[in-house]
Design a protein around this nucleic acid. Structure first.
Lengths: 94, 94
DNA sequence: TTATATAATAGCACATGTGCTATATTTTTT
DNA sequence: AAAAAATATAGCACATGTGCTATTATATAA
């Protein structure tokens, strides 16, 4: 029958990485001196989306981030200028 | 009644940016000498997802990209070390 | 060429990103 | 303090990202 083996499927939501991104975005937006509303308008995305990103409620897509970087007129290397915590090396610690 | 004003809503799919990202990913993956399958395993995401990204069929989320960067053990500034075409400055040209 | 590994497609189900439209909450100005 | 501006939340509808499981196409090795 194949019904769905009781939800084992889990999508990734990298909270720590998204928090770091949020911090970076807020910082750059403030430096640019624009409100969420202005940024949303310039980037052609919704205000709610900017707010959701800054409050780490969602996991945005690359296209959304690209639009933001363009609107702020900053290179991707600037908006992504932060480090991901390396839980990679730590490897299953229990 | 509010039925839905005949689909005006359009999500962003930044083809050129996603192509640039795809090129960069393939390059880095090859430099690391890993197959899509190995990368998928290391990153904890599905093989089909890696293929979709490299063939520009989807618009991945940040968490997915973060997982890939971790798996390849490269900083975000490396994987995002490319420029977005600046259709921003051009501004509505018609 | 034949076998084998790698990459590309496909289709389904489910989770979630995004736009919209409001409303509430917080911060900044006056 | 009151008013105004900026942020944060919410909920709905729809689009689409992601995992799975196969299958097909392509490249590499024998």
């Amino acid at each position: 029958m194949k019904i769905r083996d009781t939800n084992t499927r889990k999508l990734i939501f990298d909270r720590s990485g998204l928090i770091a991104f949020s911090v970076q975005l807020k910082k750059l937006r403030h430096e640019a001196g624009v409100s969420q509303s202005q940024l949303a308008y310039e980037a052609g995305i919704s205000l709610s989306q900017i707010a959701r990103i800054e409050t780490v409620r969602i996991n945005p897509t690359l296209s959304t981030v690209f639009a933001i970087a363009r609107a702020l007129d900053i290179p991707l290397t600037t908006i992504f200028n932060f480090s991901l915590s390396d839980e990679k090396k730590t490897e299953k610690y229990f």
